[in-house]
């Protein structure tokens, strides 16, 4: 798209990444997108007390075309799902998604047919934020986490390489059903691998 696409991996590209990340993270415009109770806390973040303007986010954009960040604040019903996706599609790149509250993140306590069990079924989520609803500080914390992510995001060939690596990792990952439910309590009591205790 831009200059970064043409640059080879190396010092110039990483510097550009740093600069772009610094600029981008400080100028995010969220889309106005309250779905349920979490929206009340999201609005509170916009009030002078919490003052989201401190992060360059004073403007909650009423149109997705001028927004970079979708804060999915509330449970996503099956009926709302296509709308969420459409709003996301209308946003211009680069764009990010915060899944605010447990309902948006996983369906929360609404484990039923009416609610999408996690908005990541419809849109890619960058930050998951627990809470029911999360207090404003928690949302601010999520935004700061997002800033860190944006600051570290890759461009150009690095971006392609990062995407490849992520896919490799995902393909190699154990299914959750096979993951150990806990770390082994007695692991420290067992001799390191390959050592024969009888020898």
């Amino acid at each position: 798209m831009g200059l970064e696409e043409k640059l080879p991996a190396g010092f110039v590209l990483t510097t550009l990444e740093n600069v772009a990340g610094y600029m981008r993270k400080a100028s995010i415009w969220p889309a106005t997108f309250g779905l349920a109770c979490c929206a009340i806390e999201m609005m509170a973040v916009g009030t002078p007390d919490y003052d989201i303007a401190r992060f360059g986010m004073e403007r909650f954009s009423a149109t997705p075309r001028q927004a970079d960040l979708m804060i999915v604040a509330g449970r996503v019903s099956q009926k709302m799902a296509p709308v969420v996706r459409q709003v996301y599609d209308q946003m211009a790149n680069p764009k990010w998604v915060i899944s605010m509250g447990v309902c948006a993140s996983s369906g929360g306590m609404f484990n039923n047919y009416a609610i999408v069990q996690g908005v990541d079924h419809i849109v890619p989520v960058d930050i998951y934020l627990p809470g029911c609803p999360p207090r404003p500080e928690m949302l601010l914390n999520a935004i700061i986490e997002l800033h860190k992510q944006i600051q570290g995001s890759k461009l150009g060939v690095n971006r392609v390489a990062a995407a490849r690596a992520a896919e490799e990792a995902a393909l190699g990952a154990l299914p959750t059903s096979l993951m150990a439910p806990t770390h082994d309590h007695t692991a420290h009591l067992v001799a390191p691998a390959g050592k024969n205790l009888l020898a």
Binding site: S105, G118, I127, Y128, P130, G131, N141, T176, T182, H183
Partner: peptide, 17 residues
């Protein structure tokens, strides 16, 4: 403690440790 935001679902399942 409330600063719990993370970027993936798996890490938000807290284990006993």
């Amino acid at each position: 403690f409330y600063e719990l935001a993370d970027n993936n679902r798996a890490d938000l399942i807290f284990t006993k440790e």
